[in-house]
């Protein structure tokens, strides 16, 4: 420990200012706060403050045209409970968040196991696999918009060509179709991140154990469960939790592909909040309330994350 008892030294010999500052900096709590303060400053100004301001706005009838709204208590929240579009929004967000994640997890795991095998051009393929994640969502969603086009969709063309369908599929035309289409695009975009995280985890799996288990007659599945899974379990849990959080708070993919349509039936929290709060109506109060309805779910998820991380450290 270099934390010399600064006080006693100062008493014995009067120190020059520079040295006194140096001793002061040697005190661990002071140094810790100094190290943490720049990060905290940004978090406070651009995360906590806007968060609490958002809560305040959600309790007012503030609009874009009328910057100083009046306090209305929980009226915005109550109004949303009677709003049919909001009911759909809640359902959609849950479908979007919780249905896509298992697919991303399983597909990502399979991909990672696949790319962990030895085959020619493996590195090129590993890089190519990550493309959906590297391409800006704003742009890949444009590509999906073309692929889902009501008239020009290559999917429809292929299926028609194979004689599986008679007329073009309205990929974004009905609520059910649109939600399935959104989920597919989301799975496509999200799977590579799982694959890369899991692939990385697989590098830590001890090969000797695998070989020993194989000699003792364990088949592939048994070896996966007994040797591989325990090593990558942590990565699976954390990646899954982050993915749920990110998917829940998504915006761009839905905004570009459906804008919440048809007939406001495919909104998720982010897009509906945007539409009510900033886009069309400019009802900032209600928009903020919509975003904040997301909070309980995200709070539960982060509590799980925190507990998991702590339990691993105990």
């Amino acid at each position: 420990m270099t934390t010399a008892p600064a006080g006693t030294v100062t008493q014995a010999v009067p120190l020059r200012l520079r040295e006194r500052v140096r001793h002061w900096l040697d005190s661990e709590p002071v140094l810790a706060y100094l190290f943490m303060s720049p990060g905290w400053l940004i978090l406070l100004l651009f995360m906590s403050y806007p968060f609490f301001l958002g809560i305040w706005i959600s309790l007012t009838d503030r609009t874009v045209g009328l910057p100083s709204g009046e306090f209305v208590g929980f009226r915005n929240y109550a109004e949303l409970l009677r709003d049919r579009t909001f009911h759909l929004t809640v359902m959609n967000t849950f479908i979007y968040g919780f249905v896509t994640v298992p697919f991303k997890l399983v597909l990502g795991l399979l991909l990672a196991l696949l790319l962990n095998q030895a085959f020619p051009m493996r590195n090129v393929l590993r890089a190519a696999l990550l493309l959906p994640w590297i391409v800006p969502t704003a742009l890949s969603s444009l590509a999906w918009l073309m692929l889902y086009d009501a008239v020009l969709s290559p999917f429809s063309w292929l299926l028609k060509n194979w004689g599986l369908i008679e007329s073009n599929i309205a990929f974004l035309g009905t609520r059910t179709n649109a939600i399935i289409s959104l989920c597919i695009a989301n799975i496509w975009r999200g799977t590579p991140f799982f694959a890369v995280a899991i692939l990385a985890g697989l590098q830590a799996v001890p090969q000797e154990l695998h070989e020993a288990a194989a000699i003792e007659g364990a088949n592939r599945v048994q070896r996966f469960l007994a040797v591989t899974l325990p090593v990558i379990k942590g990565i699976l849990v954390i990646t899954t939790l982050f993915s749920i959080i990110w998917t829940f708070a998504d915006f761009q993919l839905v905004y570009v592909l459906t804008k919440g349509g048809p007939a406001n039936s495919t909104h998720i929290f982010g897009t509906y909040a945007w539409q009510i709060g900033i886009g069309g109506a400019g009802k900032l109060g209600i928009g903020a309330a919509i975003s904040l309805y997301m909070f309980p779910v995200l709070a539960v998820l982060s509590a799980i994350l925190l507990r998991y991380v702590r339990s691993q450290e105990a």
């Binding site: 995360m47 403050y49 806007p50 829940f248 708070a249 903020a288 982060s302």
Partner: peptide, 21 residues
């Protein structure tokens, strides 16, 4: 714990206040 909490504040909530700031 606060750091973890900061991870989950949705950007749609902070967007507008940050713009005002």
């Amino acid at each position: 714990a606060l750091i973890i909490a900061a991870l989950l504040v949705p950007s749609t909530v902070t967007l507008l206040p940050n713009y005002l700031t």
